[in-house]
Design a protein around this nucleic acid. Structure first.
Lengths: 113, 113
DNA sequence: TTATATTTCTTACAATATAATTAATATATA
DNA sequence: TATATATTAATTATATTGTAAGAAATATAA
């Protein structure tokens, strides 16, 4: 395939959207809100780490901030290839659905057999 | 996650679009054209079979047609749950991207570090 | 009756997703 | 100061999903 998987797309979207504030916890909140589902930390870290290995995202630790607890936040940032990949799935989706009217459940669902 | 994966979305889209003509070979052509990539038959059958097991699609064999070769075509059809799932990812994508302007590669990609 | 085309289907392996848990490290409070 | 509590990163083990390679079936053509 070579297109972003759906979790990858959602995670990159969060990183893109959150900008300077894109660290694990905020990313998790972002995708949870968008999808209406709960995301484990593994579901954030593992794919994000893979994306970093592929160069679609980069990260760095920032200095402690004045709220209690936690290791230093790791901030994620888009890279140009990451943006490109995000753009590609967006366009793929558009080419699938633009011009197609909202479908009502009956339209092309068959009920025979 | 419970959303359709991207291959699943593409395959269901093909089944939906092709209607009566949705069998393995035509589905493969459809998704190849849409994605610009080659799809092995395994990449069609295996996920499609899983989708059928989950009730998102159903299939049946049709009588031989007057072209040479091949086992009987297996035609796939959307089911109402399949349509629902397809609609869900479509809406998810819309909620991610509507209102967001086409992004140029510079916009939110960072170049520091 | 042999060749060739078209299709389904299987299997084995690779890649990805996710839950569950551990570890680290900050402030708050007794 | 010592202990509690909050917040975060990171790992690991398992389940799920994706994909290539190719076998098997079955039609017409030569």
């Amino acid at each position: 395939m070579k297109f972003l998987s759906r979790p990858e797309e959602l995670l990159l979207h969060a990183v893109w959207e959150l900008q300077e504030d894109a660290y694990c916890v905020s990313i998790r909140k972002h995708v949870s809100k968008l999808t209406g589902k709960t995301w484990s930390f593994g579901a954030i870290y593992v794919p994000l780490h893979r994306l970093e290995k592929k160069g679609l995202v980069k990260s760095y630790l920032v200095d402690p901030i004045p709220v209690r607890g936690g290791k230093s936040r790791r901030i994620y940032k888009m890279t140009p290839p990451g943006l490109k990949a995000l753009d590609e799935v967006r366009k793929l989706h558009d080419s699938m659905w633009t011009g197609v009217p909202e479908f009502s459940s009956e339209k092309k669902a068959s009920n025979e057999s």
